[in-house]
Design a protein around this nucleic acid. Structure first.
Lengths: 136, 136
DNA sequence: GTCCCTGCAAACGTTTTGCACACAG
DNA sequence: CTGTGTGCAAAACGTTTGCAGGGAC
């Protein structure tokens, strides 16, 4: 898929060094990061990035729909750049590790919807990962 | 089902006025409350209840399994006394109203589990409720 | 009487905000 | 040049903790 940075540029985003490293930090292996983890990754490349800029930027990416905000059980928000393919999550409740999984979306019958207009479904499998299981 | 208070007493809980009103606040209509909403309800009956006691008590009820902690999209924790019957949630992303719904649990195939030991599944339908839809 | 619970206030971690300056367009 | 993004620091927010006193059992 088109890289996140290009998608942002195409939206007319002013592309600053800070935004570039933040977008780059979201790409590749580093999914499901907290804002602080994004900050740490961004600072490895551009040490003067400020915490506020990371929060501002992440929030904006979320509000334009280029990033998915998922609320972890510990109350910290995580950010998922994998917006294009709809997926769900497998979460280790012990260490917080999170994997993407693909399962069919559950659905509500008309009368179960209580007149609500359904926007989407989120499925989270709570689990213990192999590492944490063997540690116990 | 046995009232929450009786279940707590049976566990050998020291039953103080504070704990009683907190447990009572959780019963009946008032499900999915934030800690602060629980505090407000508790104070209507017993004005000198402190915030810390509410947090302590809720956390203890969660840890012994008499209460379910669900993390709302806004990052605030909510508490669900409805532990006995396994259910899922229908959430209005606008006003935060939350309803219980019953749908079949999605399941992961063996190779989708990546060696994780599955503990449970949470399904949340993100939606807009009739009131918020008509307000827009 | 003992131990656990309580209240208060202060600490904590995460996220947001206000404001002057800087730089991408 | 203009407008928007930035850094910094302080505030806001929900939650947790330390400690002295009090009440359930």
């Amino acid at each position: 898929m088109t890289p996140l940075i290009d998608r942002l540029r195409r939206r007319g985003w002013r592309m600053t060094p800070q935004r570039r490293v933040i977008a780059e930090a979201m790409t590749g292996e580093h999914v499901h990061m907290t804002a602080d983890e994004v900050l740490r990754h961004a600072r490895e490349v551009l040490p003067e990035v400020s915490r506020a800029t990371v929060y501002n930027t992440l929030n904006e990416m979320v509000s334009i729909g280029e990033l998915l905000e998922i609320t972890h059980a510990d109350g910290r928000k995580r950010y998922d750049p994998n917006v294009a393919d709809h997926h769900h999550h497998l979460l280790c409740v012990e260490c917080g590790r999170m994997l993407d999984v693909h399962v069919d979306d559950p659905a509500l019958t008309a009368d179960q919807q209580h007149g609500f207009h359904i926007l989407g479904v989120e499925v989270t499998f709570r689990a213990r990962c192999p590492e944490c299981a063997s540690a116990a």
